[in-house]
Design a protein around this nucleic acid. Sequence first.
DNA 1: CGAAAAATTCTTGCATACAAGAATTCAGAC
DNA 2: GTCTGAATTCTTGTATGCAAGAATTTTTCG
Lengths: 244, 244
Amino acid sequence: MDSPADTTPLAALLAQLPQPQPGRRKGALHGSTVAQLRNLIVTGALAPGAKLNERELCLQLGVSRTPVREAIKTLTQDGLLRALPNKSSVVAELDVGEIEALIDVVSTIEGLAGELAAARATDEAVAEIGMLHYRMMLHHTRDELPGYFEANKAFHRRIVELSGNPVLLWIWELLALRVDRARYSSNLWPKRWKMAIQEHEQILAALTAGDAALASQRLREHVRNGLSGLVAALKDKAAKSDSA
Amino acid sequence: MDSPADTTPLAALLAQLPQPQPGRRKGALHGSTVAQLRNLIVTGALAPGAKLNERELCLQLGVSRTPVREAIKTLTQDGLLRALPNKSSVVAELDVGEIEALIDVVSTIEGLAGELAAARATDEAVAEIGMLHYRMMLHHTRDELPGYFEANKAFHRRIVELSGNPVLLWIWELLALRVDRARYSSNLWPKRWKMAIQEHEQILAALTAGDAALASQRLREHVRNGLSGLVAALKDKAAKSDSA
DNA sequence: CGAAAAATTCTTGCATACAAGAATTCAGAC
DNA sequence: GTCTGAATTCTTGTATGCAAGAATTTTTCG
């Protein structure tokens, strides 16, 4: 049976290598590949402008080109990559102009979320958001940046979810990818932590009161403040690296 | 040369069939496949709930499974399809609740676009948008529905472009897909044509005056009116098909 | 005849093969 | 030594192969 090549034309030889890894279900590769790649981009591990060689990614992620290519297409659609015909895709530059453009859109979207959420806020929902707020404060006191990021994002996300508008949530998630990327790129803004916490408390109060107009306005301003600070930090960083 | 099979192992046989069609450039299949499929879905040629068999689509579109699969992934991300693991993707239902959710988001987004556009409106830009408005009126007088749709969409898009905010345009295009789908699904709303034209004139006036607050408010209301009418029409349709 | 189970067929998910275009290297002329 | 261009290599775009899971049909038992 294990006689030479002519009985096992090639397919059999290859079939031995892949090691199907018993724990892997069938439809899981696309999703996990997207998640891994996205994480590399958002955190900055893959720097803006970096070229993505499909073969390398295959080796690194341990999958074939098909899921890698699908992931690239997905992330291109999300605006994290730029596709050039017949050339390697590259990680999208995060230019400051685009982040400034984000300010208007994200603040408006979250303002709308706050308006709708305030109208639907139950005691339970507000308590849940309050919990997220305190979790964020806890990470703040411990100077835990990643935990702070995560809790902050969860706070905002929960408000958008509370709006009850699935389209709004969809759009918010798309925008949040870019915001996260900008945050990671300039992680030198702990100055704003204190103010952010105060603003969150104001937002919570407006939600508790069910005051839609106030919640909307405070969320709009909170987002605008945060992103503006981010833009300033990025510009500062750019200026320093220019002079260096 | 045309002797039997053993000299042409299989690859050569297959190589004769595809007929590379000289006019086709390399990177064009993904894009055109997406466009064709999207059109089938948006116009309703592929009804909500319809299952997409990849093989059939390959035959119908004359391409292999690779671009078809990529197109399906793309449209799933756009929310036009729903993916089920290990099963055929299906055309997303356009449920009325989701269109109602669209109202808040699209009106807010276009309101923001109007606000930004008014601040940047030059005479030239306003003239261009005015031209689109008159083109729409022309199609109206001729009862040309597709032309009316197209001009209407161009009018709105141009305002969003005029806002100068690329993120806003990106989001608007995503939302416009769903709006278009809803429009096609209930093409029984010519009642609103007259009012829509009047509202467009009001919007144009606000842009001309450079009045950001007014342009924003009028766009918000215009979009809200249009989509609300659409929802009413769809509910009407649903009620009738229930009683039938 | 009906229902349950087994086997077949079909369909998707992933991997790979092949071709066209881009990038790079190397040779040759000046 | 450098510039040009041809040849090679590399990379992406597309097509196809193969296996696992779903659907369907057939078969068998009550």
